[in-house]
């Protein structure tokens, strides 16, 4: 093999290798290769990210898990911006129960978040176990009913922050 032939072959092989490597990168774009934070469950382990989603879910739930017969539509706006997907309908079902008797019994209801545990957390989604303390006041006779409730919440990260995509009563 002459020097010229050898150089031509080497050039061809090296260009081929470069093209193959570039093609590999292009065929598997970064979007299909999840980043570590999208694959690994960093619940609890990433303290800052965990605190962020806990605060967001606590705040959001606190604003929507309320009913006041004097302002029955107060939670509608926060619910629209905080809930997405299946959660909207699941919330409506919870709300309908209160709204059915609310005006007649003059109900004032509030669910406060007692504890939140993050079960799964990635860069884009989260699953949480939420313990609620419910308090319902029947203004007509002044009776107060307190009861615990447990829900499982799924959340997704959007450009506007965390939004709840599923609420399941346990």
């Amino acid at each position: 093999m002459s020097t010229l032939q050898g150089l031509r072959t080497a050039t061809a092989v090296l260009v081929g290798a470069a093209v193959a490597a570039i093609a590999t990168v292009l065929v598997a774009p970064p979007s299909s290769v999840p980043s570590p934070s999208d694959r690994l469950n960093v619940a609890v382990v990433d303290a800052d990210a965990t605190a962020e989603v806990v605060t967001a879910v606590e705040d959001g739930l606190g604003r929507i898990l309320v009913y006041d017969y004097r302002h029955p539509h107060r939670a509608e706006k926060p619910a629209a911006s905080f809930l997405t997907g299946a959660a909207s309908e699941q919330y409506q079902q919870i709300y309908d129960v209160l709204a059915a008797v609310g005006p007649r019994q003059k109900l004032i209801h509030r669910s406060t978040v007692s504890r939140v545990g993050v079960q799964r957390l990635t860069g884009s989604s989260a699953e949480l176990l939420v313990f609620l303390d419910q308090e319902t006041v029947r203004t007509t006779d002044g009776s107060v009913n307190r009861a615990p409730a447990q829900i499982r919440v799924e959340a997704v990260r959007t450009d506007d922050g965390w939004r709840v995509s599923s609420i399941e009563l346990l």
Binding site: L7, A10, T11, L14, A17, A18, V19, A21, I22, T24
Partner: peptide, 16 residues
């Protein structure tokens, strides 16, 4: 050309 190709292949390999 061979040298240029070698540099290109190395760079592509590094990216990969």
């Amino acid at each position: 050309r061979a040298y240029a190709a070698a540099v290109l292949a190395l760079a592509a390999g590094a990216v990969l």
